[in-house]
């Protein structure tokens, strides 16, 4: 489910980064209040645990193996906020150290796997398990359903993020600039795999580990209340009312962007500026006139226009020389480093 860099536009990554920032801040504050000086060792352990169990190969009925995410499990033993931090760190190490998942798409991966997944799993588990005894079957059933739903919600979000790319970003000739699959393909493809295979696997694994806890050390299933919302604040939504309002407004506004017919903000052409402001700033007019050497105005690489291949060859040649100069400069810098070090 890790989305690598390159599949999503930078703007999508930034948008979800903005959405995640307050969530991370709230999580850090809550966990710090609950754990005090324990936060560093316990979160580190949780993150390492989350990283390692993602590597376990789990046999599936057809004889091959698959990996589970384990986010739901972590949410059940640590509570959703702490598991948000642990999974974020596990994802950061995967991205920085082992190149799994991207650097810019880190925010998106966190939104799906560190936020949506554990929270869905946790609240489903709480809903089913309620106040039952730690050894009650409702616990493992809740865990299994939570694991199943958690991964499916995360998969749906991933599919939507990928699916809106061809809608929003494409070249004038219609070729997609990022992920090419529209919602009508991305959502069914992702969901089919997750509803039928990855979801049940995650559910079975989460449920079975909880059953292991029940038979070996059921107290683990109680400890999460340490990290959960303080009882008096209920679901704890009250204090985040402003944040929720903000997110709600953002969510309501975002589809408007799809409906709006205008150009992206700040990317107006000179005529559009003229229409918007009533006049064309002199500097802009001058710039527009001087910037007329666009090689392929409509990007119609049909090759029928006279002189097309000539122009293309000149462009490639210029680019090659340019890159050659940049490479040479890079080389000079590395030589300069040597001189600098010897000094």
């Amino acid at each position: 489910m890790h989305i690598p860099d390159g599949y999503l536009s930078p703007s999508t990554c930034i948008t979800l980064g903005v959405a995640m920032a307050p969530v991370w801040a709230v999580a850090a504050k809550r966990v710090k209040t609950a754990l005090k000086s324990r936060i560093v060792p316990l979160m580190a352990i949780g993150a390492a645990f989350s990283f390692i169990i993602m590597m376990y190969n789990i046999p599936i009925p057809d004889g091959t193996t698959a990996h589970a995410v384990g986010g739901g499990l972590l949410a059940i033993v640590l509570g959703p906020w702490a598991s948000l931090i642990c999974i974020t760190i596990a994802l950061a190490i995967q991205a920085l150290l082992f190149g799994d998942g991207g650097i810019w798409t880190f925010t998106v991966n966190c939104f799906n796997m560190a936020f949506l997944l554990p929270f869905t799993a946790y609240w489903t588990y709480r809903l089913i398990a309620a106040n039952s005894e730690p050894i009650s079957p409702r616990r493992w059933i809740g865990a299994a359903v939570g694991g199943y739903l958690g991964i499916n919600v995360a998969a749906l979000a991933t599919a939507i993020e990928l699916g809106i790319q061809p809608l929003l970003f494409h070249a004038p000739n219609g070729s997609a600039l990022y992920c090419p699959y529209p919602l009508s393909l991305a959502v069914p493809a992702m969901m089919l795999a997750h509803i039928s295979i990855a979801g049940p696997l995650e559910g079975v694994v989460t449920g079975m580990v909880v059953r292991y806890f029940q038979s070996h050390d059921a107290s683990i299933l109680d400890s999460h209340f340490l990290f959960a919302a303080p009882a008096e604040s209920g679901f704890g939504f009250g204090r985040y009312r402003k944040l929720l309002w903000g997110l709600g407004v953002l969510a309501a506004l975002s589809p408007l962007g799809l409906l709006a017919k205008g150009t992206a903000w700040g990317e107006w052409s000179a005529e559009e500026v003229g229409k918007l402001v009533g006049y064309v700033p002199a500097g802009l007019a001058q710039l527009t006139d001087s910037w007329s050497h666009t090689l392929f105005p409509d990007y119609s690489l049909s090759g029928t226009e006279p002189g097309f291949w000539g122009a293309a060859a000149v462009y490639v040649l210029c680019a090659a020389i340019g890159v050659g100069i940049i490479l040479f400069m890079t080389y000079l810098l590395s030589r300069f480093q040597t001189v600098e070090q010897e000094r």
């Binding site: 324990r38 316990l42 352990i45 376990y56 046999p59 499990l73 033993v77 079975v204 292991y212 070996h216």
Partner: peptide
Amino acid sequence: KRGFVTSAMGQLWTKTHAMG
């Protein structure tokens, strides 16, 4: 086999939590 993997996960958690 799956029973082994899941109990390994559970055991790993018990061990690491105590170590933490």
